[in-house]
């Protein structure tokens, strides 16, 4: 079984702070990390590979330094890694990104399952997975909380939706996007870390993928960000202090009082 895991390097949004005077994001010192949801995607691929045999190939699109997240995946146990990097890829929206990623999947060839995290924490779009599936014309199963069965050309997975869970059977090849319910990602191993450090990671650019400039990067992106603003800072609420009994009574007033204001 051949797995491709699509990952992304993102700024750790939990570390992003707002410069209150300028109203901008303070990005300085914000670490770049492997998108947390993608760790689950890597783990899921590794588990099935360990059970069924085969290989896990991890792919990301990004600037040269995005290689770091590929090495993390290799340290966890991925077999191969490919970096899609080219100045022409810059400024890509989800459509251009998935054009690039889908082409990489085709070039890798003989892939049975593409796995990616539910969404990336910087953009939170959750669009790349389905869009890759559409580009490849493969079926997709999104919001997967558990992969029940894999092999013999089919996958059975649980897809968690608002009011329940669909047990879905899909034919392979398939693209799935994974929730955090699916597993607990392993830590890297020492041997993995050493392998990761020494591994030569191939870099594929626009020519390697045989893509036209109009399909990738900013030029291949129908959407554009025209304005970035910081949400209005809230002035803060009414703060109550006092004995536990007094506080409790005030809280109950609010809980039961309905429309008091």
């Amino acid at each position: 079984m051949r797995f491709v895991v699509v990952v992304k390097q993102v700024p750790d949004t939990a570390e992003v702070r707002i410069d209150e005077e300028k109203g901008t994001l303070i990005r300085e010192g914000v670490p770049s990390i492997l998108n947390p949801f993608d760790e689950y995607a890597i783990e899921e691929a590794l588990r099935w590979r360990d059970e069924l045999g085969g290989s896990v190939i991890v792919v990301t699109m990004g600037p040269p330094q995005a290689e770091a997240v590929l090495r993390e995946a290799v340290a966890m146990g991925a077999d191969e890694a490919i970096l899609l990097s080219d100045r022409a890829f810059a400024g890509a929206d989800t459509l251009a990104t998935s054009n690039t990623l889908a082409r990489a999947v085709s070039r890798i060839g003989d892939v049975d399952v593409v796995i990616t995290g539910k969404q990336a924490i910087d953009g939170d779009t959750a669009q790349t997975g389905p869009s890759i599936a559409a580009s490849l014309d493969w079926p997709q199963v999104t919001f997967v909380g558990k992969v029940r069965q894999l092999g013999d050309g089919v996958m059975v997975a649980e897809r968690y939706v608002e009011d329940g869970c669909e047990v879905i059977r899909a034919s392979l090849p398939v693209v799935i996007t994974l929730l955090k319910d699916a597993n607990t990602p392993r830590l890297p191993s020492l041997r993995g870390k050493m392998k990761a450090r020494k591994m030569e990671i191939p870099v594929w650019g626009i020519d390697d993928l045989g893509l036209e400039p109009g399909k990738v990067g900013l030029d291949g992106s129908p959407t554009r960000v025209v304005k970035v603003a910081t949400p209005e800072a809230s002035s803060g609420g009414e703060i109550h202090r006092g004995e536990p009994g007094e506080l409790a009574a005030l809280i109950v007033d609010r809980l039961l009082g309905g429309e008091v204001e």
Partner: peptide, 18 residues
């Protein structure tokens, strides 16, 4: 050495996560 730093990093990660 890089290898010893790997050990340190890995143990730090185990410490933090577990």
């Amino acid at each position: 050495s890089e290898e010893l730093r790997d050990i340190k990093e890995l143990c730090a990660e185990i410490a933090e996560k577990y």
